[in-house]
Amino acid sequence: MTTRILFVCLGNICRSPAAEGVARALLPDCEIDSAGTSGWHVGEPPYGPMRAAARARGIDLAALRARQFEPADFSRFDLILAMDGQNLRDIEAQRPVGRDTPVRLFTDYIADSGTDHVPDPYYTRDFDGALDLIEAAAAGLRRALRAEG
């Protein structure tokens, strides 16, 4: 059975599309998507500097377009991964009654990372630092999925 994973950040133009791109490369047997808790950028491609930083690592985000997270995503996905605590709370606030889809912080998959979130490079301007965390978390996610069998 294919695992369906959704990555969620605020605007779906930096962190979550980067996580989508990285995860598609590392987890080819999974269905991967991304979304934002806000609707500010719906239909837009990932932010130019994030696309450039990802492209420098061999990850092409150009075809992706932002979309807003919606309650139906709890039915569409087996695992929802938030980039920070506020995203996680915003996702949980939309949880339909009776839906038990796990929602976790993406950084939970980085052993001893010392961080509980992927800082938003739209504000920090540290696109490479965000990608470093995303790649580490995606590698941890791959290990966890393999361990599950």
Score class of each variant (00 low, 15 high):
41 H>W: 02
63 A>Y: 01
19 A>Y: 05
66 A>N: 04
96 P>S: 07
107 T>W: 03
109 Y>M: 05
18 A>Q: 10
23 A>G: 09
19 A>E: 06
6 L>D: 08
93 A>Q: 14
1 M>Y: 01
59 I>P: 07
26 L>E: 15
54 A>L: 09
108 D>L: 00
51 R>D: 01
146 R>Q: 13
101 T>R: 05
53 A>G: 11
11 G>S: 05
56 A>I: 10
76 R>T: 13
109 Y>N: 06
116 D>W: 05
144 A>N: 03
29 D>L: 11
106 F>D: 00
53 A>P: 13
136 A>L: 15
52 A>M: 09
38 S>T: 15
37 T>C: 09
111 A>Q: 12
149 G>T: 02
99 R>Y: 02
54 A>I: 10
68 Q>V: 02
24 R>E: 11
130 A>I: 09
111 A>T: 13
57 R>F: 08
78 D>E: 08
49 P>E: 13
83 M>Y: 08
83 M>P: 00
143 R>S: 15
70 E>L: 06
12 N>K: 00
74 F>S: 01
142 R>Q: 14
10 L>C: 03
134 I>Y: 01
110 I>A: 07
7 F>L: 08
148 E>K: 15
52 A>W: 00
24 R>I: 02
64 L>D: 01
129 G>A: 10
115 T>I: 14
18 A>P: 02
141 L>P: 01
128 D>L: 09
70 E>I: 06
53 A>F: 07
124 T>A: 08
12 N>V: 06
126 D>C: 12
102 P>H: 11
91 I>C: 06
92 E>D: 13
52 A>Q: 15
63 A>I: 02
19 A>V: 00
108 D>P: 04
65 R>L: 01
106 F>S: 01
47 Y>M: 10
131 L>D: 11
20 E>A: 09
50 M>H: 07
109 Y>L: 07
137 A>H: 03
18 A>K: 05
39 G>N: 04
27 L>C: 11
14 C>W: 06
84 D>R: 02
44 E>W: 09
83 M>F: 04
17 P>W: 08
111 A>W: 00
134 I>S: 00
108 D>S: 12
147 A>N: 06
99 R>E: 14
119 P>M: 03
76 R>A: 14
85 G>F: 05
8 V>P: 07
73 D>G: 02
148 E>R: 15
116 D>Y: 04
9 C>E: 07
123 Y>L: 12
66 A>Y: 06
102 P>G: 12
23 A>S: 13
56 A>N: 11
144 A>I: 01
49 P>D: 14
62 A>G: 01
105 L>P: 03
121 P>S: 12
63 A>T: 14
16 S>N: 12
